[in-house]
């Protein structure tokens, strides 16, 4: 994928009727209630603390604030953060 331009990736995803995020590597963020956050296509952790966690994505740093934040699981494709999630925002 790395050799295709962003525009080509978008066109490809349109042609294949696939979600754009899956092709171009945009983060896919799924919040379950306010207790679990799943981030696909992340690019690593910038900061990890119990009340604040920053995750690097292709769109910038995603700031997750809350209490008792725990990295429930972490594999190259996704991170699952659990705890009491209060706010999610992009820092641009």
């Amino acid at each position: 994928m790395g050799k295709l331009s962003e525009g080509a990736k978008e066109k490809l995803s349109e042609r294949l009727s696939l979600p754009t995020s899956a092709i171009i590597g945009d983060p896919l963020i799924e919040l379950t209630g306010s207790n679990q956050l799943r981030i696909e296509n992340h690019k690593g952790i910038v900061k990890y603390a119990g009340n604040e966690t920053k995750v690097n994505t292709s769109l910038g740093t995603l700031l997750v604030t809350g209490t008792s934040l725990v990295i429930k699981s972490m594999i190259p494709e996704e991170i699952v953060i659990s705890g009491t999630i209060e706010k999610i925002e992009y820092l641009k």
Partner: peptide, 25 residues
């Protein structure tokens, strides 16, 4: 802890239930 987690992640090692208390991950 971020560096440790990212290193682990870059090496394709799966981890879970990560907790950091300010000193120990």
């Amino acid at each position: 802890p971020e560096k440790a987690l990212n290193l682990i992640n870059r090496n394709g090692i799966a981890i879970w239930d990560a907790v950091y208390d300010g000193n120990i991950l």
